[in-house]
């Protein structure tokens, strides 16, 4: 394969549409997730307006789900807001990772792109930003992905609110949609031993800390897993320097 064979998208419209296309698989995961959220929201005692309002203004699926669960347990507003903060802290890390690629943009771009940042859009756009094709309109790619996710999320929420009158929908287990989406994002990232170590520590720590209140276990696990990845990186790097010809990690790829 030579470099010239790769198509270079260099128009705003092309980037916008490519961003939407790349997000399509994640929309498929978000459809059942959003419908279940809408149904679960009204089932938890939230008004339909508040259930939709959360999708419109908060726009963070896993946090919305957890908030609806806390409403069902009659938790106070302060606890719900604090939990949302903890659950969404990972977005600060996503933002920091994307920031170098958007630092040239004016506020009228940064405000909506920041507001619309989700796991799904991050997963799609970070791969695109890091491709060295030199396109100057990659923020349009993120715009396409973000807008698609946002508009879709409102529609799925509405369908869920309407369908929420049907008893038993929340028991169908469609929340697996979130898990399968995240699995499809994570597994291809496990390309070397530090990444695998990171995933193993994240999984084990998340199980051990599961009982901690307000999803604090999530943050503890994330920090432990990042540390594990960095430590593994430091452990294997000197060995590589001694024998630079060995690239055994590549052979694992199919």
């Amino acid at each position: 394969m030579n470099a010239a064979a790769q198509p270079t998208i260099s128009t705003r419209r092309g980037e916008f549409l490519a961003g939407m296309r790349a997000t399509l698989p994640l929309i498929l995961g978000a459809i059942p997730f959003g419908i279940i959220y809408g149904a679960f929201g009204v089932g938890s005692g939230l008004s339909p307006a508040a259930t939709l309002g959360m999708s419109l203004f908060v726009f963070a699926g896993s946090a919305q789900f957890i908030a609806a669960g806390l409403v069902a347990q009659d938790s106070g507003v302060v606890l719900i807001v604090l939990t949302t903060f903890v659950v969404n802290l990972r977005h600060a890390l996503y933002s920091a990772s994307l920031a170098p690629f958007v630092k040239h943009l004016p506020q009228r771009w940064l405000l909506p792109l920041g507001f619309w940042l989700t796991d799904e859009t991050y997963a799609v756009v970070i791969t695109h930003y890091t491709q060295p094709d030199g396109s100057p309109y990659k923020h349009w790619y993120q715009f396409g992905s973000s807008l698609f996710m946002y508009v879709g999320w409102q529609v799925w929420t509405l369908i869920g609110i309407i369908a929420g009158q049907q008893p038993g929908l929340a028991k169908l287990g469609l929340d697996f949609a979130m898990s399968v989406t995240f699995i499809g994002i994570v597994v291809p990232l496990l390309v070397n031993r530090p990444m695998v170590a990171c995933a193993l520590v994240a999984g084990v720590t998340a199980l051990l800390t599961y009982a901690l209140p307000n999803k604090m276990g999530l943050m503890v696990s994330a920090v432990a897993a990042i540390a594990a990845g960095l430590i593994m990186e430091n452990v294997i790097t000197p060995r590589r320097q001694r024998a630079p010809a060995v690239t055994s990690e590549q052979e694992a790829a199919p």
């Binding site: 933002s95 920031a99 170098p100 940064l110 920041g114 990171c198 999984g203 998340a206 920090v223 960095l230």
Partner: peptide, 30 residues
């Protein structure tokens, strides 16, 4: 998103950030 891009992030922070998606999403899934 708005501020960090205007400051230079230290190399160790950038290295650590590469592990964030795997760390956070695995901790949600498992």
């Amino acid at each position: 998103l708005a501020l960090v891009g205007r400051l230079q992030l230290p190399q160790p922070v950038i290295r650590a950030l590469r592990y964030v998606p795997v760390a956070v999403l695995t901790a949600i899934i498992v």
